[in-house]
Design a protein around this nucleic acid. Structure first.
Length: 755
DNA sequence: TTAGGGTTAG
């Protein structure tokens, strides 16, 4: 025994007391094993000594017990025996409670470690996800002339992360060839897996196709490689190839194939995979059943998904979550919620799936409520949850909560990946905070097509058309290919800044430069671009000549332009086109009313109102959101339901008085009520934006920016009031309406009164 | 005495 070892071990060992519940049996076994060294004759058979000891190791359950056994072997001098050393190291390396520091101390006592014990050490480091230590161990082996064998590499590679694999995978592959293990199937499989992990799919494919012997695991590793890079066609093709070569799939094969079917919504192959289970060719297990549920749910076959779910012997949180996500994705969010509420255990994925369900149905406030409940349940959100919550904040214009989330990410070290960055950019832009969005962009270590697109669209809707187009040319400079959404942003930038000629050029270059066929939304943008600039006839020509049937958005763009440029005749035509497509579209009736009101065509206006009444069509009520102290407050016109309603109305009175002194007179041109001026004014006075502004003024300190989200287009009078408020009270007012932002500062608006 | 592959949400 080496003295240094005694010191090290004693500093690690807990006191030698047998206090655990297993102590009595343990004590007995130790007494059987601790044969005094003096009694061991050189001729006695070693097994007589080792058998009880081996049993002891086999029954060992914890590090405490291991340390007790270890102490006994020290006392009895058995600790220098390789079999004992191996057992102690193996326990530390493989048992779930095993301590690698202890393993290392033990390892350090061995003057000439075997390849077996080195392999075990590497396996241990991989188990606790310390691949760097695995590599060090491997290098130490080489230094000490311990030749690796065909076990070494599978153990080593198992712990690899993407980065480590990329850094030293190829070099290790060279070693494997040098040592002659490259024909070993286990080693090959490990390398296929490792190459797929670090994204070197060609290398993975190379090893796969050059291998002389393959078993089902080889195929499975290759299937998972294609899944990882989302080449689901290849998964299908390989599944067929396996079948043709007579390789029987295992449950893992089916899970991989089902996962691909789920993501590519391939019900046919999914059902074929299910057949193997139904024909008893593959024994189902929990993971396989979960994969089946997920596949059916993803393909919208909730009845089949529920069929599997109900017949399962045991279900786990994943089974439940797959059902919740299935209903959520099918738009059945209330049904999803019913299953969610029945879950006995929910993890962060379950919560996120449910939050996403609300997002999909545009029920953003409920999404945020659920997020708050998630936090009181002490479930830690991850980056997926964060993206969902930021999306909800973006829609609601909830900047305070969005900022809180940003702090949360930093404080709790949530993985700040490109998705999170993109969501933050989107949130800041949709809350009207251009500078902060730009700040996030500058700090992102990795950006993708979606980042550029978020920047271009965000700048465009915030009235920064030139900057949006600068961004676009930068994007092209770094050779990121734009997609159809990017072009929506580009055209929107041109529209909001009145750059008609540039807009037309970009529209043409979509096809010629990037092979993107304009869709109906792009035609909508072009009509908007021409229409807003007053080229109503040209806009109409575009509609007449477009290759697809114009939808209500395209006609709506023309109708909006007719309103701005007061062309009642063309407006009527456009409105009628929309009403043919969507006879229930309340907003169009309202717009038509606005136009008739603006040209004093009261008779026509009354007729439209009568039609609305006859058809039972209600206009979408205008609604303004304003966040204060993390709570989203909602106002509709004439709202008196807010707890601070009295204060809000008295502030509104005061505001109107102040504004009138400053020269304000109400603009009733967009009020479509055929009533006296006084009633029109009183209707205007109670618009939801004004209530929200008054609430903002009384609820925040001087100089604080007031941010409002409006569900419809902002009316001319509210626009005028907001301008005056920004000047009179020295407040920046930011209103996001249905299509764009209005940044009111010092009496003027970023939209240049053109919206 | 030692090996390799898998399920849920952006």
């Amino acid at each position: 025994m080496q003295p240094s070892f005694v010191l090290k071990i004693h500093s690690l060992c807990s006191p030698l007391t047998l206090s655990t519940s297993h102590s009595s049996s343990l004590e007995k076994m130790i007494s059987m094993a601790s044969v005094s060294p003096t009694r061991i004759s050189p001729h006695s058979h070693p097994r007589s000594l080792e058998n009880p000891l081996l049993t002891l190791f086999e029954n060992c359950k914890s590090m405490d017990q291991l340390k007790q056994i270890h102490s006994q072997t020290i006392k009895t001098g058995l600790t220098s025996k390789p079999v004992v050393q191996n057992k102690i190291v193996a326990f530390c390396c493989t048992h779930e409670s095993g301590d690698m520091t202890y393993a290392r101390y033990m390892f350090d006592t061995i003057p000439e470690p075997s390849v077996f014990i080195c392999n075990t050490m590497i396996k241990g480091y991989s188990r606790i996800h310390l691949p760097e230590n695995g590599i060090s161990m491997y290098l130490e082996m080489l230094r000490r002339n311990v030749k690796p064998d065909h076990y070494t590499f599978p153990f080593l590679l198992k712990g690899f992360t993407h980065d480590i694999a990329l850094a030293c995978g190829k070099q290790l592959h060279g070693h494997v060839v040098k040592y002659g293990f490259d024909s070993n199937m286990f080693v090959q499989n490990s390398f296929v897996h490792m190459y797929s992990l670090c994204g070197l799919i060609d290398m993975a494919r190379g090893v796969f196709y050059s291998s002389q012997i393959r078993d089902v695991v080889t195929w499975n590793v290759m299937l998972s490689a294609y899944n990882r890079i989302k080449q689901f066609d290849e998964v299908r093709r390989l599944f067929y190839e396996m079948d043709k070569k007579g390789v029987s799939p295992t449950s893992v094969t089916l899970v991989l194939v089902l996962s691909a079917c789920s993501k590519s919504k391939d019900l046919d192959i999914g059902k074929r995979a299910h057949e193997y289970v139904k024909e008893c060719k593959v024994e189902p297990n929990l993971i396989l059943e979960n994969a089946l549920i997920d596949m059916y749910a993803a393909c919208g076959e909730m009845d089949l998904a529920l069929g599997i779910f109900r017949n399962m012997k045991t279900r786990d949180v994943i089974s439940w979550t797959a059902i919740v996500a299935g209903f959520a994705n099918a738009g059945e969010v209330d049904l999803a919620r019913r299953y969610f509420d029945q879950m006995s255990e929910r993890d962060y994925v379950s919560w996120t799936a449910m939050i996403d369900g609300y997002l999909q149905m545009n029920r953003f406030k409920e999404a945020l409520t659920l997020f708050r409940q998630m936090q009181t349940s002490n479930i830690r959100p991850d980056e997926f949850t964060i993206v969902s919550v930021l999306t909800a904040c973006a829609h609601l214009g909830a900047l305070e909560l969005g900022e809180w989330i940003k702090t949360y990410i930093e404080k709790h070290k949530i993985k700040n990946d490109v998705y999170v960055g993109n969501a933050l950019i989107d949130m800041y832009f949709k809350c009207g905070n251009v500078e902060k969005a730009q700040g996030i962009f500058k700090e992102m270590p990795r950006i993708d097509k979606f980042t550029w697109t978020a920047m271009i669209v965000g700048l465009a809707i915030n009235g920064r058309g030139e900057e949006a187009l600068d961004m676009f040319s930068e994007m092209l400079k770094v050779r990121i290919a734009p997609d159809e959404i990017t072009y929506i942003g580009v055209l929107c930038a041109c529209t909001h800044t009145g750059m008609v000629d540039s807009g037309k050029r970009f529209f043409a270059s979509m096809t010629t430069q990037h092979g993107i066929k304009p869709n109906v939304a792009h035609y909508g943008c072009i009509v908007d671009l021409l229409g807003r600039a007053g080229h109503l006839k040209e806009a109409h020509e575009v509609i007449k000549n477009m290759p697809m049937k114009p939808n209500s958005i395209v006609w709506g763009a023309l109708l909006g332009a007719c309103r701005v440029h007061k062309d009642a005749e063309m407006a009527e035509m456009a409105a009628k086109q929309i009403l043919e497509l969507e006879p229930e579209n309340g907003a169009v009736y309202v717009l038509l009313c606005n136009i008739y009101a603006a040209c004093n065509r009261w008779e026509d206006l009354r007729e439209v109102r009568q039609t609305m009444k006859d058809r039972g069509i209600k206009k979408t009520p205008g609604c303004s959101l304003i966040e204060m102290n993390g709570i989203v407050n909602e106002f509709v016109a004439g709202d008196q339901s807010h707890p601070k309603s009295t204060d809000i109305y008295s502030k509104l009175d005061e505001m109107t008085r102040d504004l009138k002194i400053a020269g304000y007179s109400p603009d009733t041109s967009e009020i479509s009520l055929d009533v006296g001026e006084e009633d029109k004014e009183s209707a205007l006075y109670r618009h939801s934006e004004k209530l929200a502004i008054a609430f903002g003024l009384i609820s925040s300190g001087p100089g604080v920016t007031i941010r409002i989200v409006k569900n419809l287009r902002m009316c001319v009078d509210c626009h005028r009031v907001a301008k005056l408020v920004s000047n009179l009270y020295n407040r920046e007012v930011i209103v996001r309406d249905k299509t764009r932002f209005h940044h009111f500062r010092n009496g003027s608006c970023s939209c240049k009164d053109y919206w």
